[in-house]
């Protein structure tokens, strides 16, 4: 049993929780994730470790289905049955020079811990964080404090630069090309945004989020194709060379259980199962 020591809402449908899990927190590095199962009937789901403080790990998640909704309902003092981690290969942290970290939506959750590690390794870190609108933007202050420079975009222009994060990224590549770039967010956003750096030949990483079960390399549910080869994202990744990733396959496999997810949502909410609100 792992106790939740703090829980709060960060934005509409985005929540933060701190969980006491010393075996995970003590060895966690930037870019790694954990797998949790809330209760006896729960599904195992992967979430990025987005912060560490002593024995505590932080998760930040968007409510998209049954498990994340159950998770959002948990309060300080509640417990989670299983937490395993840290999983996956850590971010390749070294001295690159200038690094740009791009986060879209809840993908921003992954950035601060990576930014800190890159900063400590002596890099100049530029952050670009984007959301659909001002209310959905998360972790601005935290990113502000760890980045040398922070650019904000919103799709509707309600805050920062209007448009997608790809815009400022392109401009940076043209005017002052960075040495390495990270793009983390929904698959489609990673596909489009990481495409920007390709013509410039800039080393670019994405963190892939396929459906996982064990997170330890024994099922193959998380298989992705990178550079024409099948890899297991949970042990070979989750970060990969963006320009080698087959994003269309990733997006297709993310829809593996679309019907079942609706059925599960309907079962738990008694509603229409449209994946709407609780």
């Amino acid at each position: 049993m792992y106790t939740i020591t703090a829980a709060s809402a960060l934005a509409e449908n985005v929540y933060e929780a701190w969980i006491s899990a010393p075996h995970v927190s003590r060895h966690a590095e930037a870019g790694q994730f954990l797998v949790l199962r809330i209760d006896e009937t729960g599904e195992r789901i992967p979430l990025t470790i987005s912060g560490v403080d002593g024995d505590l790990v932080r998760i930040i998640f968007m409510t998209v289905g049954t498990t994340t909704r159950k998770l959002a309902a948990l309060k300080k003092g509640d417990t989670i049955l299983d937490v395993v981690g840290p999983l996956g290969q850590p971010t390749e942290v070294k001295r690159y020079g200038t690094c740009v970290l791009v986060g879209g939506g809840v993908g921003i959750a992954c950035l601060p811990i990576i930014a800190k590690a890159l900063k400590t390794a002596g890099n100049t870190v530029i952050g670009i964080i984007g959301a659909r609108n001002k209310d959905l933007l998360i972790l601005e202050d935290e990113m502000q404090s760890v980045c040398d420079e922070l650019i904000i975009t919103t799709d509707d222009g309600s805050y920062g630069i209007k448009g997608f994060a790809a815009g400022p990224l392109k401009e940076i590549c043209e005017t002052r090309p960075p040495d390495a770039v990270w793009v983390i967010g929904p698959a489609i956003m990673m596909k489009v945004t990481s495409g920007v750096t390709k013509p410039f030949g800039i080393r670019t990483f994405v963190s892939l989020n396929p459906i996982m079960v064990d997170g330890t390399g024994m099922c193959g549910s998380c298989r992705v194709v990178v550079g024409g080869e099948t890899r297991f994202a949970c042990v070979d990744g989750p970060e990969f060379d963006a320009h080698e990733v087959n994003f269309d396959l990733l997006m297709s496999r993310q829809r593996f259980y679309t019907d079942e997810e609706k059925e599960s949502a309907a079962h738990h909410t008694g509603g229409c199962g449209c994946g709407g609100h609780h």
Binding site: T41, G42, E43, R44, T66, T67, V213, D214, M218, C219, G220, S221, Y257, E260, E261, E263, S264, A266, H267, H268
Partner: peptide, 22 residues
């Protein structure tokens, strides 16, 4: 087979949606 069997034997996907794993 590992994934299929794990989903059913360990996570009880045969009892979906009473168990959450599909």
């Amino acid at each position: 087979a590992n994934e299929f069997l794990t989903r059913v034997n360990l996570l009880h996907a045969d009892a979906f949606p009473h168990h959450d794993t599909p």
